[in-house]
Design a protein around this nucleic acid. Structure first.
Lengths: 253, 253
DNA sequence: CTGCACTATGAATCGCTAA
DNA sequence: GTTAGCGATTCATAGTGCA
């Protein structure tokens, strides 16, 4: 089997994931289409059907993940008729109770978006955070010892971060969203997958994003010396991913 | 009926709440004992029984809350055997489906604790946030128009807050925890109830904390010119509350 | 090459109107 | 009744252009 730094599978989950071997992935970081969002590209799964839609994908992710691997799921329920949807809560409960392939709900981290969407409403605060759900196959998952404590370097940015995070890694990440990045409407900042890649894998690990989009997870993996696999149905975005990866590869030479 | 700025009911929920009239409370802000915590004072409800324990209390809170009132529940599930408990998720779902007294799950805010408990675990990030669940009886709840947007004044403190909170109110609150405050183990900072009292009530409103503890919610209400009711079973803490309230009253004169 | 002004836009939400 | 579509609201970034 050829080892390439980054592999793109053009296809749809869960079918496309069947190309991957059991217990072969060290880390999954992904942001699936949220319920009723991105309808033009993903079909816009209604909230009521979201759990049923996601479970077969979760089973495949469980199969390909190493026992010591981690699965990070970025998601946020929207507000409808003044109330938050409950499908994310129901998804967490359903993943834990999966008969053949049950997940452990290890942790819930918070992505605090400094530059959240504008707006002012009489009955609602501005939505400025998203969930980062961590799931594992077993209790003893891998953590990189170099990133289990305080920042290694003490540059200005780190010091500012230390002031916020008190020196140790907390479960709140303060990162800005990307604006008009890579022509994709739902890209998270590269720092987000990078944060988890650094802490939850060792160098030359294999990272998977089953909803690759513009390929931010793959790019972060490449930059950190990890191998990666991305699944993306649209030809347009597969090309975007290749271009971004090639650009980074040229920069590294 | 005598109107007093702050009333302390020594007793236990839900029984003690039966002294309060229907539709009489403008805002409930509380931090109940978390599952398996504070066993000596509250009996330490096991996670499996937490929902069943809380539902009768929630019914009473629903009864006494005005239709336009809000209920803010500060809670965080603990981690056991490497996994987060799911009782908070189950509580949200159960409160919405309550037959006689269903709650709307309006919003979930995040309390980002900037100086959270120090420590370093091999398998876990530092726990630096808690949930602030907002529930309402109806979609149209009261919001104070003075606090629906940017800060009115531009003094130094406000500017600093603006820098953190992005000018407009988002649903992430960055507040420090109280350290050894008032001899109570589970005190939240006064800024926390104050933030909600300012935004969700008008002056001379009536604020309730059914798990008053050391009385931080009542103190915040007093300082903001609101009336308050607290329920607390222990004589020791009832005295602490009275002392703090008297101290603040003397300061106001 | 730096710095400042200006512009475009994003996982949003609400309320109204039309069908 | 109920749903579907559109306009208004609103601001931190990134990018562009020019002095």
């Amino acid at each position: 089997m050829e080892t390439e730094p980054a592999r793109i599978i053009q296809g749809r989950c869960p079918e496309a994931l069947m190309q991957l071997a059991d217990d072969s992935i060290d880390l999954i970081v992904t942001s699936p289409p949220y319920a009723d969002r991105r309808a033009s590209t993903y079909g816009g799964t209604p909230p009521e059907q979201y759990v049923a839609w996601f479970l077969p994908i979760a089973d495949q992710l469980h199969r390909v993940l190493k026992p010591t691997g981690s699965f990070i799921l970025n998601i946020k329920e929207s507000a409808v008729k003044g109330e938050r949807h409950t499908y994310v809560l129901e998804l967490i409960l359903a993943l834990r109770k999966r008969e053949q392939r049950p997940w452990l709900w290890t942790e819930e981290l918070v992505w605090h978006k400094r530059n959240c969407y504008p707006g002012k409403w009489p009955n609602r605060f501005r939505d400025s955070w998203e969930r980062l759900l961590q799931f594992n196959k077993q209790r003893g998952y891998y953590r990189n010892p170099e990133f289990s404590g305080a920042s290694a370097e003490g540059n200005q940015e780190d010091e500012q971060e230390d002031e916020i995070n008190n020196g140790l890694d907390g479960n709140v990440l303060q990162l800005a969203t990307e604006c008009g990045n890579a022509g994709h409407s739902a890209a998270f900042p590269e720092e987000l997958p990078a944060w988890f890649i650094e802490r939850l894998t060792r160098p030359s690990a294999l990272v998977l994003d089953p909803f690759a989009g513009s390929g931010t997870t793959l790019l972060a993996a490449l930059r950190l010396g990890r191998n990666s696999v991305g699944v993306e149905p649209q030809d347009k975005y597969c090309q975007v991913i290749r271009q971004r990866l090639e650009g980074e590869t040229r920069r590294l030479l």
